[in-house]
């Protein structure tokens, strides 16, 4: 479906990313996850054709498109902002690509398909409204409809939920994932939010400093991060003697019997449980561990580590 070989991007002696190999299967949603400035957005823009790779080859549907202009590639990019054309109505925005863009259809056909799509995204009643009359989430839905009506081989999404408030972001990303799955869309999705990446994608790719760090299913990457960078960004746990122990193998022992001494920094509340962020001065690390006991900030605790392999059936 998408195959990227040895891609690199340089800008005036500065390497934005290099040695990137990515393969995406048809129908999969793949996330590229990484901190700001890791080159993920530039990579996405190069795949869309809005910027050029310095090196490498890009194949989409087995066709080489490395040198093809953005307007002729079988991909559509969705930006952080919905970017609905403000002077056009919702319906006119949805139709835009089928009139001026990648998939030219007859007037009758494009209206029919756009209206059908607006019904699917539950925006049909809003078809004659202007973008400024919609909420942020509604705008992003229409933007998705406008992109999908072009039936791209690959949909690229550049943090499309980052401009929304937390509550809306949660509900919209699940809605978008289900909708993409239902429509059988292949998508490459860029984010810096690991929870979002885990919710949205079949596979994820972790990127840092312009290099691919690890690729795999979300659970795999979370439980077995390949290096310290991936672990810090994608997982929770401790690095001990060159090995990584996920938070699930750690517990607060309370007594002095534990292996490491820590200080409770603050509590966190999520999904019905209480977690504590604990600073461990001797390791110069912090870790978040679940605990059912109530503990005070500043309290001294010990952290017990379950050795690997010893708790397979615990």
């Amino acid at each position: 479906m998408l195959k990227l070989r040895q891609a690199a991007k340089k800008y005036e002696d500065q390497v934005i990313f290099s040695n990137i190999d990515i393969a995406v299967k048809a129908g999969d949603i793949v996330s590229i996850l990484g901190p700001s400035g890791c080159g993920k957005t530039s990579l996405l823009r190069c795949i869309a054709g809005l910027a050029a790779f310095t090196e490498g080859e890009l194949f989409i549907d087995s066709r080489e498109v490395t040198r093809i202009k953005a307007e002729n590639r079988p991909v559509v990019l969705m930006f952080q902002e919905p970017l609905l054309f403000p002077h056009l109505t919702v319906l006119q925005n949805a139709i835009y690509g089928m009139k001026h863009g990648k998939r030219k259809l007859s007037r009758k056909e494009r209206i029919r398909q756009a209206e059908e799509m607006l019904k699917k995204i539950e925006m049909f009643e809003w078809k004659d409204r202007y973008p400024s009359q919609l909420s942020g989430g509604q705008q992003q839905r229409v933007s998705l409809a406008r992109a999908l009506l072009l039936q791209p081989s690959l949909l690229l999404l550049d943090e499309p939920f980052s401009s929304l408030d937390a509550h809306l972001r949660h509900s919209l990303r699940i809605w978008v994932r289900d909708f993409l799955k239902q429509e059988g869309v292949t998508a490459l999705f860029v984010t810096h939010d690991r929870e979002e990446a885990a919710v949205m994608s079949d596979r994820l790719i972790v990127m840092k400093d312009g290099k691919l760090q690890q690729e795999g299913e979300p659970r795999e990457v979370y439980e077995q991060p390949l290096n310290k960078d991936v672990a810090d960004f994608m997982s929770d746990g401790l690095h001990l003697d060159g090995e990584f122990y996920t938070a699930s193998s750690l517990s607060i022992s309370g007594s002095q019997a534990g292996t490491y001494q820590g200080i409770i920094e603050h509590p966190l509340f999520a999904y019905g449980y209480t977690f504590y962020r604990i600073k461990i001065p001797e390791l110069e690390q912090s870790v978040v561990v679940r605990s059912d006991e109530v503990r005070e900030e500043g309290q001294q605790v010990s952290i017990a580590v379950q050795q690997k392999g010893s708790a397979a059936d615990d």
Binding site: L50, E71, F79, L83, F85, P86, H87, G97, H100, K102
Partner: peptide, 25 residues
């Protein structure tokens, strides 16, 4: 500048993007 990029990725040529997207704004 994202407006022109958005309309290019939708498939409009730069000239068309100018008349249909930029000019109204």
């Amino acid at each position: 500048p994202d407006w022109v990029k958005q309309s290019r990725t939708i498939g409009t040529s730069q000239a068309a993007a100018f008349f249909i997207v930029l000019l109204p704004m």
